[in-house]
Amino acid sequence: MKGLFTGAIARSAQAGRGTGRYLATTLRLMVGVPDYETYLAHMRANHPDQEPMEYPAFFRERQQARYGGKGRIACC
């Protein structure tokens, strides 16, 4: 019986972490903070031959794109 509860607690905690990550990503996007992990996954999947930007450069580029920097850098 103990194993049954332990498994249920572990599954519940794992589901909570997934929900927490989803909520954090949603909140970041709502306030304009870019999601670096999504960018890295995109670069690995679509541009494996290119080196991804470091986080500070990525953040600056996203801020410029959102709030009107000098020229917009687009991908795909």
Rank of each mutant, 00 (worst) to 15 (best):
D49A: 02
C75P: 00
L23Y: 13
T26Y: 09
G20M: 10
P48S: 03
G71T: 12
G7Q: 08
A57F: 05
Q50E: 05
A15R: 09
Q63H: 02
E37P: 00
E37S: 14
T19C: 02
H47V: 07
Y55H: 07
E61N: 06
A65Y: 02
A24S: 10
H47S: 05
Y39E: 00
E51L: 11
F59V: 04
M1D: 00
A8F: 10
Q14T: 04
G7P: 01
M43K: 07
L23Q: 15
G71F: 02
L29W: 05
Y67L: 14
F5G: 12
R28N: 06
G32D: 00
F58C: 06
A13N: 04
E37H: 15
R44H: 15
H47P: 01
E51K: 03
A8W: 10
Y36D: 03
A10N: 09
C75K: 09
E51T: 05
D35G: 07
G32R: 03
T19G: 03
Y22D: 06
A13D: 02
R21I: 14
R44F: 07
P34C: 15
R28G: 00
Q64N: 11
R11W: 13
A24P: 00
D49I: 00
T38W: 12
I9W: 01
C76F: 03
M53L: 13
D35Y: 12
Y67E: 15
K70D: 10
Q14V: 07
Y39S: 07
G32W: 05
F5E: 13
A57P: 11
R62E: 07
P34M: 08
F5P: 10
P56Y: 04
F58Y: 11
S12M: 15
L29A: 04
T6C: 01
T26D: 03
Q50M: 13
A41M: 10
M43G: 02
R17H: 05
G69Y: 05
R11G: 13
V33K: 01
E37M: 11
K2P: 00
G7S: 07
P48D: 04
R62W: 01
M1V: 14
A57I: 09
T6D: 15
T19N: 04
D35C: 11
L27W: 12
V33E: 11
A10W: 05
Q64L: 05
C76V: 04
L23C: 09
M43C: 07
L23I: 15
A45G: 11
R11V: 15
Y67Q: 10
A41N: 09
K2C: 02
E51D: 10
P48V: 03
L4V: 08
L27S: 01
R72C: 11
Q14W: 12
A10G: 08
A13F: 13
C75Q: 08
C75M: 08
Y67T: 07
L27N: 01
